[in-house]
C-alpha cells in the first residue's frame, strides 16, 4: 500500500519523476538544533513542473528550499542551506519554532 503521505517513498517518488523526463532536486535535512520539526534524513523532492513530495520543516522553509532547488536542478551544483534564528535571513525565512536546520540540496541525475 502506498500513499502520498508515506514518508518512506520520497526517494522513489523523485526517481519516478526523473524517469518521466523531469528535472528533479532532492533536499535532505542534514543537521538540526533545538526544536526543529523534522528529523535528520527527512527529504523534500521537487521537480521542474512544480510537484513536491515530503518535507524538511513544518512548512516554514519549504518556499526558500524550493527556490534554491529550482536553480540547483539547472546548475547541478549541490548546496548546503542554513536556516534558523541565528541566521541573518531569520526574519524572512526562519523557523517559527526557534530551531535551526541545515538542508543539503542536490540534483537527481538518475
Amino acid at each position: 500500500m502506498t500513499h502520498p503521505l508515506q514518508e518512506d517513498q520520497i526517494f522513489e517518488t523523485a526517481r519516478a519523476w526523473k524517469a518521466e523526463g523531469c528535472k528533479v532536486a532532492l533536499a535532505t535535512v542534514i543537521n538540526t538544533w533545538g526544536s526543529s520539526p523534522r528529523p535528520v534524513g527527512s527529504q523534500l523532492a521537487v521537480d521542474d513542473t512544480g510537484r513536491m513530495a515530503g518535507s524538511v520543516s513544518g512548512g516554514c522553509i519549504e518556499g526558500a528550499v524550493i527556490h534554491e532547488a529550482r536553480e540547483i536542478m539547472d546548475s547541478g551544483v549541490p548546496k548546503t542551506l542554513h536556516f534558523g534564528i541565528a541566521d541573518e535571513t531569520a526574519w524572512e525565512v526562519g523557523l517559527a519554532c526557534g530551531g535551526k536546520v541545515d538542508v543539503f540540496v542536490e540534483r537527481l541525475d538518475g
Binding site: 526517494f11 522513489e12 526517481r15 526523473k18 532532492l26 542536490e106 540534483r107 537527481l108 541525475d109 538518475g110
Partner: peptide, 14 residues
C-alpha cells in the same frame, strides 16, 4: 546524485 549512485540506493532500498 549520479545515475549509478541513485540506482544503487534504489536497489538497496528495494
Amino acid at each position: 546524485m549520479t545515475p549509478e549512485i541513485a540506482e544503487r540506493v534504489a536497489r538497496g532500498r528495494a
